[in-house]
Design a protein around this nucleic acid. Structure first.
Lengths: 180, 180
DNA sequence: TACAATTTTCACAAATTACTGAAAATTCAG
DNA sequence: CTGAATTTTCAGTAATTTGTGAAAATTGTA
């Protein structure tokens, strides 16, 4: 499979970004080619398109599976496994947010809880615990949000995000409603 | 500077997480010790606390400065430079979000725009552009949001996040108000 | 069940990233 | 200005991460 120049440059870019997104270069490239190609792809096609070894593709697919970012499908009469990304970009975003939360927040939340259970050994530990408490509360709220996001339809999510600068006003309205 | 066991374990944890957060181990540890200690710290103290070389600390501080995560301050009668984190945890969160957006979204947004300007060379490119458009729109909304976040006070931000599961309801209310 | 097709694993190699000590540059009190 | 204190830079090295080919495991069909 040969990539068009447009694809080529997008794939390269997502490779660069991959590492900044908690994936890595190859994973970024692989996911780019899967997301940006309409037809499901098999490992050999990916390997050829990105000029990387078959085994590397296998490991990458394993990782993408663990992120729930790809769907496996079979094509009648073909024994190979084909992969595609969800067609709804919001679903991809939702998944990314949740999976990153799992990896970036959940373990920390648990460590923070442990620290809060400990007996402070001196004044300095007391300050530390105070900060830990603040971080914990913040992260817990973010967690609630991402859970909320999970349950929202793409339409609703899109509407919420479109609100953009309007969110401030909505908040004010809500305050008024409650204070009445 | 010797760390209490509580600090020690928190610092180690944030070191682990550092790499998942787009920083790296040392940066994570450094920021943990700065955030969790009440008094501003100088480079030597950090170097001793984390058992890393003075030069490594210097590079780390440079990076943390570029993230706008630390404040430089001077202590009267002392020539050394001291660093501390904002006392408001929300300010830290806001900064983190914005800086990550700069690094993780902005460059991609610009690449996506470039791709949209190009003339599709075939049907496959047309599909690609369609997906690029979707990604672009989504990322642009996220960008608007983070901008909005920037302007919000910690109190407001906290209130918004506390809304948590309530956000769905608020959205519904808003729809009703508009449709009247 | 047998076996060819396909995928996965894994030890090693390659590439990348992080860390250090020494030296250079900067800062500031006297 | 001078020079001691402090910070920064940087080339080399160490550590970590990523990629490969060969071999093992799995799959599905004839």
């Amino acid at each position: 499979m040969k990539l068009t120049p447009m694809m080529q440059s997008l794939v390269l870019h997502f490779g660069e970004m991959g590492s900044r997104w908690g994936l890595n270069r190859t994973l970024g490239q692989m996911y780019a080619v899967i997301v940006l190609t309409e037809a499901p792809l098999n490992a050999d096609q990916i390997s050829e398109a990105l000029q990387i070894s078959r085994s590397n593709v296998s490991m990458g697919l394993k990782e993408l599976k663990s992120w729930n970012l790809i769907k496996l499908q079979h094509i009648p009469g073909d024994r190979k496994e084909y992969f595609s990304a969800p067609s709804d970009i919001w679903e991809i975003a939702r998944t990314l947010v949740v999976e990153r939360r799992k990896r970036e927040l959940d373990p920390t939340l648990s460590t923070l809880r442990d620290a809060l259970m400990e007996q402070p050994s001196n004044a300095s530990d007391e300050y530390t615990q105070m900060r830990v408490q603040q971080m914990h509360d913040l992260m817990e709220m973010v967690t609630l949000w991402t859970n909320e996001m999970q349950g929202m339809s793409s339409e609703k999510l899109s509407a919420l995000l479109k609100l953009g600068e309007g969110i401030s006003k909505i908040l004010d309205v809500k305050d008024k409603l409650l204070s009445r």
